[in-house]
Design a protein around this nucleic acid. Structure first.
Length: 712
DNA sequence: GAGTTTGAAACT
DNA sequence: CAGTTTCAAACTC
């Protein structure tokens, strides 16, 4: 956690080395002064830019800035007579007219230049910003303060602001990872005082899609080491705010005339109203558990769609004891290209646009649509942490290793009009009804998101639709495959067996569901608390288990590093089963006992005759099952092909041909074949095969004679 | 389906 | 850490 004194970039005002230090210092002084926002001079547009990468690639316009802040809240963006500010691409060669902070400390880089651009529109102020950054490093954040008239526009590094935050009593946590810094504000700040204090009105310009991913936040926020961003709002009087998450916090907020959205990795609060004061009363929560890095939040104007863009799926789940929510830590995406540059979605599209937010090249995006007008229907109070997911895509979700709290093995699509569509939805899922826009959507626990994104990115992102806002996913939850199914199904696709717990509330490792990090679903358990409705208890239980054994949720069957084969990590302790029954975890996992086992009378070793016998039996049984399955399939297909003959009063069904006589004749044939196979002393398998083949021939005969009958 | 056996998990 | 108890799955009848 970066101390607030460090101001996020480790640069103090006195360290600035720009050419207009005096004016910068003066502005800094004003900013940090109690009368900061009441200063007429400061009632000018100020833009806080999170990092240089954003600056060098973004194109953001903020218009209709209003006086939204008073007092010491440095997040307030004061109104300006120049109602617009535009930040454009860096141009290091034409630095002029701005007071700049320039410094570099450690791996932190700050903006080095900015200049106003010739205004073509007198209502707008343009700036060109420049700076240097080291890839993947902390970047500076600035306040842009456009001058009026001949007064030079000033730029102040964000550390000044940060410092002010601390002084103003806000919870101010910052952290950095890679090139991201996020500061946290107390959530109480979100709702206390004049609402106007806390919001920034933003315009409806958006970064060009073909530019580098934009990272502009009105207020940078950090959750742990995770970067989080809020994008400028697209239209209307947008208000953006970010606050600290936590039991009440770390909330990213944005608001427009009709809506206020506060968003965090674990919680999204959406308010819908026309009055900011009413907002506080009408807050509803969309709790996004394990949501994948909500880096960008966008809001359209009233009656328009709210957009939530979430990028970078690298999420670590954070278990917070006693917390109602599952928190996530957002971590830097592993860079597979050897570069430290963190790739980001290239654009932030206006929610009002009828175009997809992200470029088409951004495969793997998950799209979320939340028509504001239906928000009340969609968002429920924080019963659980959920995120709105499109249920129309084929989704399979698998448990991940790193997440003790996990998901169901499968989410089936919600096909509009299908009554079965809801059957496969996970616990906590909420079907969306109502407007057309919501068709095919369901609210599901957000911890499914990782896996969901994983799947989506593997297959295909849903087609671009103006009704959707993408949640980009450029990396998948890789831990999913790590958990091996102890039943020998590493794919995890096999449906999990329902548990039958009666006393443990499914909150102990006795419960397979819980032990596998899954919610109970379609189980036969009593008094189950392994679900979203008992999150607190569940969290406690998870913590308890982890306290007892940090590896409690790790797969029991792993790979032996030396041998490279699967083995039980702890080994079994069997005493009476000889490790040849499913009581034995090794045997159950179809692996041999190892030196780690403390079993007595073990027969589960390579050369064990008992084991070999069992294996043969098991193999034979398996083959038998396969053959039966194949025969059934073949038979059913032949029956399907069997033509039906119309009879008086209706159609004659195929089985009408299989009379008692025919059945008896068939049995005779089969018996004869069995005797023949026995006489030849074929192995059991072969005998079965011969009989089945004979049965097939009988069937063919039946079918042929039926056809003849039909033709006659 | 009820009752028994078994071994992992939980507890002391 | 060892002994005991609890628990739910596996197994038997």
């Amino acid at each position: 956690m970066m101390p607030s004194q460090n101001n996020g970039i480790g640069v103090t005002t006195s360290e600035m080395t720009n050419t207009n230090q005096n004016s910068t210092t003066e502005l800094t002084r004003r900013l940090t002064a109690p009368s900061l926002n009441t200063s007429p001079e400061l009632s000018q547009t100020q833009l806080l830019v999170q990092d240089l990468e954003a600056l060098t690639s973004m194109h953001v316009e903020i218009d209709k800035l209003q006086q939204v802040s008073t007092g010491q809240d440095v997040f307030t963006l004061a109104n300006s007579q120049d109602s617009n500010v535009m930040v454009e691409k860096v141009n290091t060669t034409t630095n002029q007219g701005l007071s700049l902070a320039s410094n570099q400390l450690g791996n932190q880089t700050i903006l080095t230049s900015a200049k106003p651009v010739q205004n073509t529109d007198v209502t707008k102020k343009h700036f060109e910003l420049s700076g240097s950054s080291q890839e993947g490093q902390q970047l500076a954040k600035f306040i842009l303060k456009p001058g009026t008239g001949s007064e030079p526009t000033q730029m102040i590094p964000i550390q000044t602001l940060t410092s002010s935050l601390s002084q103003s009593g806000l919870d101010n946590e910052s952290n950095q990872l890679g090139n991201r810094t996020i500061q946290m504000l107390s959530p109480t700040k979100l709702v206390s005082g004049s609402p106007a204090k806390q919001f920034v009105t933003m315009g409806n310009r958006f970064p060009s899609p073909n530019k580098t991913p934009t990272k502009i936040t009105m207020i940078p926020v950090s959750l742990g080491k995770s970067p989080t961003r809020i994008a400028p709002a697209p239209s209307g009087n947008m208000v953006a705010m970010v606050a600290k998450p936590g039991v009440g916090g770390n909330t990213y907020g944005a608001s427009s005339k009709g809506q206020t959205i506060t968003m965090s990795p674990s919680k999204v609060i959406i308010k819908s109203q026309t009055n900011l004061q009413q907002q506080q009363q009408q807050t509803q929560h969309v709790v996004a558990k394990q949501i994948s890095q909500p880096q960008q939040v966008q809001l359209a104007g009233q009656n328009k769609q709210m957009s939530i863009a979430v990028t970078n799926p690298n999420v670590q789940q954070i278990q917070v004891p006693g917390s109602k929510f599952h928190y996530v830590r957002l971590v830097t995406a592993p860079n597979t290209q050897g570069s430290t540059t963190v790739s980001r979605p290239a654009s932030i599209a206006p929610a009002t646009q009828a175009k997809p937010i992200a470029p088409a090249s951004q495969a793997g995006q998950m799209k979320i649509t939340v028509p504001v007008s239906q928000m009340q229907q969609i968002l429920r109070p924080a019963v659980g942490q959920r995120v709105l997911l499109p249920a129309s895509s084929q989704i399979q979700i698998r448990p991940t290793t790193s997440m003790p709290v996990q998901t169901l093995p499968q989410i089936r699509p919600n096909i509009p009009g299908s009554t079965n569509a809801v059957a496969g939805l996970p616990p906590g899922a909420t079907l969306i009804s109502g407007g057309n826009n919501m068709q095919g959507f369901a609210l599901v626990p957000a911890q499914y998101v990782n896996q969901l994104q994983n799947q989506i990115s593997k297959s295909q992102a849903p087609k671009a639709d103006s009704n959707f806002i993408p949640i980009t996913s450029n990396e998948t939850a890789t831990s999913a495959s790590a958990r091996q199914n102890i039943n020998g199904d590493p794919s995890g696709t096999r449906p999990r067996k329902p548990c039958n717990c009666t006393k443990s509330q499914c909150l102990k490792l006795y419960c397979d569901c819980f032990a596998n990090g899954e919610f109970c679903h379609n189980c036969n358990c009593n008094n189950c608390a392994n679900n979203l409705d008992h999150e607190t208890e569940r969290q406690k239980a998870v913590k308890q288990c982890l306290d007892r054994n940090p590896q409690a949720f790790h797969p029991k069957i792993g790979k032996d590093r030396d041998v490279g084969s699967r083995r039980h990590q702890k080994g079994c302790n069997c005493k009476r089963s000889g490790c040849l029954k499913n009581y034995c975890e090794c045997y159950e996992a179809k692996i041999l006992c190892s030196q780690h086992c403390k079993c007595v009378g073990c027969k589960n070793f390579e050369e064990s005759p008992d084991r070999k016998t069992l294996m043969h039996l098991a193999d034979a049984a398996e083959v038998r099952v396969q053959q039966q399955t194949a025969a059934k399939t073949k038979l059913s297909s032949q029956i399907d092909d069997l033509p039906v003959r119309p009879v008086a009063g209706g159609e004659r069904l195929p089985y009408s041909f299989v009379t008692t006589e025919v059945a008896e004749a068939t049995c005779s044939c089969l018996l004869a074949q069995a005797e023949e196979a026995e006489r030849i002393r074929y192995r059991d398998l072969m005998q079965e095969r011969m009989i089945l083949e004979e049965f097939g021939r009988c069937l063919v005969q039946i079918i042929e004679s039926a056809n003849k009958t039909k033709c006659e």
